[in-house]
């Protein structure tokens, strides 16, 4: 982290943020990411986000769980230890539906949870460098990438033009760290 790759513009209010995003995107400028402490309604339209692949992942994970569970139950009740329960067939399909349903939901839920943590690099032991700790509280941040055409000065003028407060990440982090150190001391 010797060089800043991004410029961050900070906001206090989500409505102003949404307007700013629309204005920036109207000029054809790319926004690489927006951070917010909660889900902001209308954000996906303002950012022009496409549909995520979560539904496909969920479907595949759920199917995997369902098929595994079915195979497991069929093996137990049909092959390994067949028991005659009230004269029902050894593989009674209607009776399999509740565990199948539950297990499919469980696999989907838990594995999506793990997947989300992996994608967002939130797994334990991963070293996280927060842009600003206020992001989990009441601040919103627009992140824009620095390239050859988009110099720092250019981005800063754009962000200032839409009313953002430019975040000096490194400095901020230092002061935060110092603050905590002071508090600890």
């Amino acid at each position: 982290m010797t060089e800043n790759k991004f410029v961050y513009g900070e906001y206090d209010d989500e409505h102003i943020l949404l307007d700013a995003i629309r204005k920036i995107r109207k000029d054809g400028t790319d926004i690489s990411e927006v951070y917010s402490p909660f889900a902001v309604h209308g954000m996906e339209d303002a950012l022009g986000l496409r549909m995520t692949r979560i539904p496909i992942a969920a479907f595949l994970l759920g199917m995997t769980g369902g098929i595994c569970m079915f195979a497991f139950m069929a093996w137990i009740f049909g092959i390994n230890w067949p028991i005659n329960i009230g004269g029902k067939p050894f593989i009674p399909l209607p009776a399999f539906v509740p565990p199948l349903f539950e297990f499919t939901v469980l696999t989907t839920g838990v594995s999506l949870f793990v997947l989300l943590f992996h994608t967002c690099k939130l797994l334990p032991s991963v070293d996280v460098h927060p842009i600003s700790t206020d992001l989990t509280d009441d601040k919103f941040v627009i992140e824009m990438k620095i390239t050859k055409e988009m110099t720092i000065q250019k981005i800063e003028t754009i962000l200032k033009g839409v009313g953002a407060n430019i975040l000096k990440t490194k400095k901020d982090k230092k002061t935060k760290e110092e603050e905590t150190k002071e508090l600890e001391a």
């Binding site: 004269g87 209607p94 009776a95 539906v97």
Partner: peptide, 12 residues
């Protein structure tokens, strides 16, 4: 629908 059906089917 299924809950009603399955319980009756199983209890027989």
């Amino acid at each position: 629908w299924f809950s009603q059906y399955m319980l009756i089917w199983y209890a027989n």
